[in-house]
């Protein structure tokens, strides 16, 4: 029974654009963060609703001279508990955020240009491709993201969080695919009538013959 439930839950997580079916270290860390936060939230919500339910059903004294206990409700439940939980969470979050930053050497830096309505990728060898991004697997790749017209947002949900493409500035995003395959990507920032179909795909190639295959594909 439990197995069936787990299997169906996991199946529900799959999808070409699923953030909770990660295929790279950055997205994986965020997915782990999500499951932790979901668990914590379920616990906290259960606590709050249980207190509320008991509070409703028990017959309080409703004595105007004896209001509720301030130190328990406000001091412990209102202050101490959230402060503890939130500070732990904030520390964890900053640590994850720091690890997802594009620091340290990258295998390649690719110039990305978003426009209405397409994506252009230019590689270090000088070649360019439209609406298909080709990367090696197992190594970090930096994307230098620009826009030529309006604001877009580059998002490959299974690999990493999103990064906006904003006219007049260059934003860097680090991605890494753990296995070869095709990953779908969308534009996340509303960019006009073509927004819904402003998509591209990422093709990741195994490291040993990446250069040959990518070279051929590029």
């Amino acid at each position: 029974m439990v197995m069936v439930f787990l299997a169906s839950t996991l199946a529900a997580c799959e999808g070409a654009l699923s953030t909770i079916d990660p295929a790279g270290p950055s997205a994986a860390r965020v997915a782990d963060l999500w499951w932790c936060m979901l668990g914590g939230s379920i616990l906290l919500a259960t606590l709050v609703f249980a207190l509320l339910l008991v509070g409703l059903l028990r017959r309080g004294v409703a004595d105007r001279e004896k209001p509720g206990n301030k130190s328990v409700w406000i001091g412990w439940l209102g202050l101490a508990m959230p402060v503890t939980v939130l500070m732990v969470l904030l520390g964890f979050a900053l640590w994850v955020g720091e690890r997802n930053l594009p620091t340290g050497p990258a295998a390649e830096t690719i110039e990305v240009t978003a426009y209405n309505y397409g994506w252009e990728f230019c590689y270090e060898d000088g070649s360019c491709s439209e609406d298909v991004l080709r990367i090696p697997t197992g190594r970090p790749v930096d994307l230098d993201i620009r826009a030529t017209d309006v604001i877009h947002s580059l998002w490959i949900p299974r690999l990493a969080g999103k990064m906006d493409a904003i006219p007049g500035q260059v934003n860097r995003l680090r991605i890494q695919a753990d296995a070869s395959g095709t990953y779908e990507a969308v534009c996340a920032e509303y960019c006009g009538v073509g927004h819904a179909s402003h998509r591209f795909v990422v093709e990741a190639y195994e490291a040993e013959n990446a250069n040959n295959l990518m070279g051929a594909a590029r």
Binding site: M87, L94, W95, L101, P102, T103
Partner: peptide, 13 residues
């Protein structure tokens, strides 16, 4: 708390 990131986070990346 709001200044704490100065200690633990890299500055300009």
């Amino acid at each position: 708390v709001t200044g704490a990131p100065i200690v633990v986070v890299s500055s300009c990346v």
